[in-house]
Design a protein around this nucleic acid. Structure first.
Lengths: 217, 217
DNA sequence: GTATATTGGATTGCATGTAGGCTTCGCCTG
DNA sequence: CAGGCGAAGCCTACATGCAATCCAATATAC
């Protein structure tokens, strides 16, 4: 009946660990010792064990042979592979969004885009990231395909984790231009054009990522 | 050191349950009672619990509010959504396969295709399914992208489960024609053509699925 | 000083106990 | 005979015990 249908301790531990990973309190490579976490979180080992298994399933942690789980470390090569997948999924989401959605979506996207521009002008990094994510989020929600939504959420999770190490900035200007192109395609009602625009956007991000990785190496 | 790096009881239970689900011994909707399974499999409740959680994460089971987990039931609408995703992922895999792979892949695909034709001629359903799956498996392994491989494995798992209920047969002939077209595109070395061919194949399957669902309803 | 053996500490993975809550079945009442 | 009430059973989720194992640090031998 309440919004938090999550009375389970294990779920709460899972969320807390997730947060610690995204804030960097648990950095990539950090060991996830069940007894240690149980003590620090003041719960028993059982729910912690469940939560850690869940993190592993979500690819936020990896099982090291006999040393338990550690927070996942996502390298540039892996991230590039993820972006290849993301490219086609975002393309699909955009195409489906055009087929499904109406004026409501277009208006919402316009608003987010305006917010995005404002954030960039004022050099508000947090708001910029927020608006960027929100744009993609709106499109994929509008796809009406639960699988695409779930998979893109997974992808976003991976990307967020990777950002702890690498940074992919196509340059805020470029991002806005790309988003505007996607919005234009959606407005035109051409599913194929929307797919292409969305794919091009992610393709560009991936290119930037690879270039930065080369320079870094 | 041995092939079965799986000394863990929980993993073995997971595999056994998976098998029971695919063989239909555990039909969609069947309850996965941890104590009951523990007794029937002759292990304690702990590894069974872990295995069931794993099944839920893999979407082979669903958590019902307060009744524990049940084997997932995948309807036609859900399956159609999965096929939309599969379409773009298979397209991506085919494109990457062209970019990566060489003569080795082409030869292997030719062999599988020949096997596929033989199986269809002799009306060997099991062998037909096997060859069909093998073709797709070869292509995605050749993609060299771990994410695509993982996601398509997931998709295949879902499809196998759905087959317990629905059957998607585009007609064995059609499947071979489609596969041949994909192989031709791969041989020609045109990544874009390969992507299109692979997508068209899955798109056709999805269309057939939806038509059958309509007729069934 | 370096390489090796050994011991200690800690962790994983499995087993089992237990409380709270839901479902279901049977019984009683109207 | 129908509907509601109550009790019993089962299950989930959490807590905790325990053996086997692995890693690290230290001591020892050369």
């Amino acid at each position: 009946m309440d919004g938090t249908a999550t009375a389970r301790v294990a779920d709460s531990v899972y969320e807390r660990l997730r947060e610690k990973i995204f804030t960097g309190e648990l950095a990539p490579g950090a060991r996830l010792s069940v007894p240690a976490l149980a003590e620090s979180l003041e719960v028993s080992r059982s729910p912690v064990r469940d939560a850690v298994l869940h993190l592993v399933q979500d690819r936020l942690a990896r099982e090291e042979p006999r040393r338990g789980a550690v927070v996942a470390r996502i390298g540039a090569a892996e991230l590039a592979a993820i972006y290849e997948v993301r490219e086609v999924l975002e393309g699909l989401a955009a195409r489906l969004a055009v087929e499904n959605a109406g004026r409501r979506l277009v208006r919402a996207l316009h608003e987010v885009l305006a917010e995005h521009e404002r954030a960039v002008r004022t050099a508000d990094i947090a708001a910029t990231t927020e608006a960027d994510m929100r744009f993609h989020s709106l499109v994929r929600e509008a796809s009406g395909n639960a699988e695409v939504i779930r998979l893109l959420d997974e992808v976003q999770t991976q990307v967020r984790l990777a950002m702890r190490t690498t940074t992919v900035t196509a340059g805020p200007r470029h991002a806005i231009d790309d988003h505007r192109a996607i919005l234009t395609a959606i407005e035109s009602g051409d599913p194929f054009a929307a797919e292409q625009a969305a794919r091009a956007h992610i393709f560009r991000l991936r290119t930037v990522l690879l270039r930065q990785a080369d320079e870094g190496a």
